[in-house]
Simulated assay, not measured.
Amino acid sequence: MKQSEAIKYVNEEEEGRPLTVGTYLPDWLQGKQALRPSTRASYESHIRLHLLPHLGHVPLAELRADHIERMYQKIAGSNPERSRAVSPATMRRIHATLTSALSTAERRGLVVRNAASRVELARSPRPAASAWTSAEFARFLDLIDGDRPHLLFLLLGMRGLRRGEGVALRWRDVDLQVACIRIERSAVSVNGQTVFGPPKSSSGVRTVAVDRQTSAKLHWHGCRQRLENRDRIGTPVLSELVFTDSEGAALDPTYVSRHFDRLVKKHGLLRIRLHDLRHTSASIGLASGETLLEVSRRLGHSSISVTADIYSHIAPLVASESAERLAAVVYGSAGPDDRTPGA
């Protein structure tokens, strides 16, 4: 603990004001200097909307597991500020924020033990990944041809980029000669502003190959951007970002998701989320013969086991097609003998 923090907490105790959860949590967040902007915004939201209203009055040293359990029951039972209930996934993120804060308090000697570590949340099954078929995705692309984010949606569905990775893509990350793009950063929306930072994990930094048609589309997209900038600022130059709004500014990731939802609804397509274009990319890739390792690296997963877990529902189809390809190599075009085994 920093000396200034220790003095402040000791002074509070001496003045008869025990350190409360409501005093500690904001100070803890302020001291977290290495957080990604999106993570900081998430922690701040959890603290402001849930932890302070329910636990802020409790002296930190007296916080018990039953306080926390009652808080989760109340959160699950009432949610006045949102249109729908807090999901199990969000509840787990709230719990992770509190657990992290109390771990720091335990290391500083402010609590004897981390009360949150003694609370178990019900495990929720991972929802099955939704995806379009290749035909459904192709139809979507045909229907939105000419829409400003058309090429962005194409990259998300063809190459499996995350929304933030596509929004953050710069022309310096695009190599049309080699036909590949380099993923080195991501974009998030924080308090209505688009903020850039590194991908969510080190495995997210990667090079993704693009096909010749997509490479040609990127080329023509760059030509249109030059003309647009000539008309807007008088100079036919590329913007720093591959995808911008009509004023040349970075796209808001939240807008991209909402615009996708509007397009899907407008054209009467099977309702999926924008993130499901990433699942669509993986599903089409696996079904067309890509190996699990290739898909895992293309998506930037931390390990192949993550990919296998998410796309286990595709595994039987992939295994069957792999078996047929192996059989074609072994048997040749003539096919296997029709003789009964053992005859």
Rank of each mutant, 00 (worst) to 15 (best):
L98V: 03
L98F: 08
T99C: 06
S100Q: 14
S103L: 08
T104D: 14
A105M: 05
G109L: 10
G109N: 04
L110D: 00
V111H: 06
N114I: 06
E120P: 04
A122F: 13
R123L: 11
A129D: 02
A129V: 13
S130K: 15
A135T: 10
E136C: 01
R148W: 09
L152A: 10
L152H: 03
F153I: 03
L156P: 04
L156Q: 14
M158C: 12
R159G: 05
L161Q: 04
R163W: 04
R163T: 06
G166N: 00
G166F: 00
V167Q: 09
R170K: 13
W171I: 09
R172K: 13
R172I: 12
V174H: 07
V174D: 08
V174P: 04
L176Y: 01
C180T: 12
I183Y: 09
E184N: 11
E184M: 10
E184T: 13
R185K: 13
S186H: 01
A187K: 08
V188A: 12
S189F: 07
G192K: 02
V195F: 02
F196N: 06
G197F: 07
G197I: 01
P198E: 11
P199E: 08
K200E: 04
S203K: 14
G204P: 08
V205H: 12
V205A: 14
